[in-house]
Amino acid sequence: MPLLDVRNLSVDFKTANGQFRAVDGVDVQVDVGDVLAIVGESGSGKSVSMLALMGLLPWTATITADSMMFDGVDLSTASDRKRRSIIGKDVAMIFQEPMSSLNPCFTVGFQLREALKAHLPLSRRERQKRAIELLEQVGLPEPERRLRAFPHQLSGGMCQRVMIAMAIACKPKLLIADEPTTALDVTIQAQILELLLDLQKDTGMALVLITHDMGVVAETAQRVSVQYAGQKVEEQGVRDLFASPHHPYTSALLDALPERATTKHLPSIPGVVPGQFDRPAGCLFSPRCQYADDHCRQVKPGTASEELGHARCHYPLIKGVPQREAS
């Protein structure tokens, strides 16, 4: 049984101009010790689906799912109390902006000890000891001194380390990292990614990494789930995905990487991600897809078999060639 098993998750937002579907029928499965990357561009709903799982969405959001099983508990039906005992303890999350994720009014130590207090029955002294341990674990030098520091006295990379320390404080089974390195410099990004992977290996927790950076995906993930306009369009192991993408979107996205370019002119995907007012009737990628035909534009595709990466496409690609007869 997977650690996390979300089936058919949809999230709708009430906006000034009517309902907007941000996540559309997404399945997520994460096994113990798994490193899953969720890749997508802005508006692909990659963060929203995880925030929905954490119960962190504003009141304007409506969440529907067939099931949201975590470690044997269905989060969609569990009581608030039960939910709170799991979220933050067994499932933890870190965010993109480490500077604004910490409360600027309190010291790092205070915030770290609060996190411990909420979920673990420790004495004051034990909490302090554990806080120091945690900062050592995330590689912050001079932990005692750092505990007394305020967030603005630390750099972005150090703040992110503190956030990670807070997240792993209760030894979570699942850590969700939402663009954890996007706001950081390249050399710091490398340090943080390495730290996350080391922690994942040491503790055996599962890691969900939400990112838009294909390079980060290639270097960290075991499995990759690609999202487009709120839908999961493909899921594969990382090597297979980069070697032979089955969904035309994944394929086009990989081709658009400047480092894969052979000429000065990059292969690019025309158009933009559909928004609230121009959602196509059929396949959501059809207006930008080079293989699309009338069938694609009118009929919503189902998901293909596992060998084809669950591609949500009528004509999944095999070695870059669409399989017209396969549908």
Binding site: Q189, M214, A218
Partner: peptide, 8 residues
Amino acid sequence: ATPVADPT
């Protein structure tokens, strides 16, 4: 340090 989109 720059991640490269090549898992191999």
